[in-house]
Write a protein that binds this DNA or RNA. Structure first.
Length: 425
RNA sequence: CGGGCUGUAGUAUACCGGUAGUACAAGCGCUUUGGGAGCGUUUAGACUGGGUUCGAUUCCCAGCAGCCCGACCA
């Protein structure tokens, strides 16, 4: 895409009401737009990142036999009454509204009950199990306090998967597979090395749930990490019982600030009991389906990547989720240079390489460099009279290539560039 | 939900109980082009509602909005 056509612009300064690094950089770069506290729109660059994150999650969910659906954001009161989750005392973050005829509706806080109702239409026999369904959907939570930029929003997208199994054993097998899938997701999105499986309270359903916590100074959670074993426990289960159960030594735990980027829960039969989701066993007896739920917020993941990986100049996107693979800058207004840059741009496009072409006229070199650093595209290429010196000498150069994470670049030819970028996709 | 802080051009800020200033952005002209360049010029602003006052953007009250700390986060 040509940057001159992009409707968003970068800002030199962040709005004074944004303190968190993720929102500051994402707003300055034009990735997101703040609508109100805890509610953000995603602009072209930001949406590209979100879509990349979604695709990675989608691939990993499909790999463990997840089937994608989309449920509704409008939910009826009757759906949540059997589990006693409609009242504001039980769930205090509901956004509620009404039909013209006064029928009460809720805006989706989560989807356990609706998905259970859907599955009732299709699960009758042990032969129908196990099944795994997931969606990417907007969740609405009337948080008392939205905070930390896009990390804790009142409206946000979530990937939620729900598992339906015959019994606890079948559930546990899937649960373990989901852990691996989640770890793959965090590895592939560039935060695997700082993201830890963390034991947390299981609430009323089971002894533990598991969170995936990414270490960053900006985190809102405190976890206790065994760096050798690579597992952590949440503050709420930091007790003697848990420590001995997990074989952890209190003295070897390090306190860290972290962001919860994912969580997985064993639900058991709470929802299937309440909503009467039962199946017939081989011997004809009726049993409740054993359930689990598994969440990841793509927006929060995006914010976490920014928090964890950015430097003082701007964002650093991992290649896997970057809005573009390569940023092509043309400097100066020399006609031969701009002709060459256009040629390079067309070649990259033809080779299906995602390229952002900074073809803006009358923007100084310094500004283009600063923008490139801020936007954080993994590879920066520059075409200028300087870079083209080698080309005119027949040395096959013409393009200066530099990684966002490196200080110095090198001169490469168009073929070399294409080879490098194509093999990486 | 408790506590604290803050609302001034698109953005960031300054001063002030008496004609609201600066920088960036934006428009125009010229110069510039390897790290947010320069000169000139133009456009553009006091959250809302009450009160005090001769006069309020400034002081007071309320509302609305935002940020931070805490609580909460099934």
């Amino acid at each position: 895409m040509r940057q001159s056509q992009l409707f968003t612009k970068t800002k030199k300064e962040a709005p004074s009401d944004e303190v968190s690094k993720n929102a500051e950089l994402l707003i300055r770069g034009g990735f997101i737009h703040k609508e109100m506290a805890g509610v953000y729109s995603y602009l072209p660059l930001g949406l590209r990142v979100i879509k990349n994150i979604e695709n990675i999650i989608r691939e990993e969910m499909n790999a463990i036999d997840g089937q994608e659906i989309t449920m509704t954001a409008l939910q009826e009161k009757e759906t949540w009454e059997p589990t006693d989750q409609w009242s504001d005392e039980k769930i205090d973050v509901w956004f509620k509204t009404k039909l013209k005829n006064e029928t009460e509706l809720g805006l989706a806080v989560t989807h356990e009950a609706p998905v259970t109702k859907i599955m009732k239409s299709f699960i009758q026999s042990y032969r129908d199990l196990p099944k795994f369904v997931y969606q990417f959907q907007t969740k609405f939570r009337n948080e008392a306090r939205a905070k930390s930029g896009i990390m804790r929003c009142r409206e946000f997208e979530m990937k939620d998967l729900y598992s339906f199994c015959k019994d606890e054993q079948e559930h546990n097998e899937f649960y373990e597979k989901s852990k691996v899938a989640y770890q793959n997701i965090f590895k592939r999105t560039g935060i695997g090395h700082i993201t830890y499986l963390t034991f947390a309270s299981g609430g009323m359903f089971s002894k533990y749930s598991h969170e995936f916590q990414t270490i960053t100074g900006a985190g809102e959670d405190t976890i206790y990490l065994d760096e050798v074993k690579g597992i952590a426990i949440n503050k709420e289960v930091n007790n003697v019982e848990t420590l001995s159960l997990l074989g952890l030594d209190k003295d070897k735990l390090v306190e860290k600030r972290a962001v919860e980027v994912g969580n997985i829960f064993t639900l058991g039969t709470r929802f299937s009991d309440a909503l009467n989701l039962k199946y017939q066993t081989e011997t004809g007896e009726l049993k409740s389906v054993f359930m689990g739920s598994y969440g990841i917020g793509p927006g929060r993941l995006m914010g976490t990547v920014v928090e964890a990986l950015a430097d003082d100049k701007g964002i650093i996107w991992p290649e896997s989720i970057a809005p573009f693979k390569v940023h092509l800058l043309v400097l100066g207004d020399d006609e031969a240079v701009s002709t060459e840059a256009n040629k390079i741009y067309e070649s990259l496009v033809k080779n299906n390489i995602e390229v952002l072409f900074d073809d803006r006229k009358e923007v100084s070199a310094g500004e283009k460099f600063a923008d490139a650093d801020l936007l954080g595209i993994p590879y920066r290429t520059v075409v200028s009279t300087r870079s083209m010196k080698d080309l005119s000498a027949g040395a096959g150069g013409g393009i200066e290539l530099k990684k966002r994470t490196e200080e110095k670049g090198k001169i490469v030819s168009l073929d070399e560039l294409i080879n490098l970028l194509v093999t990486r996709t």
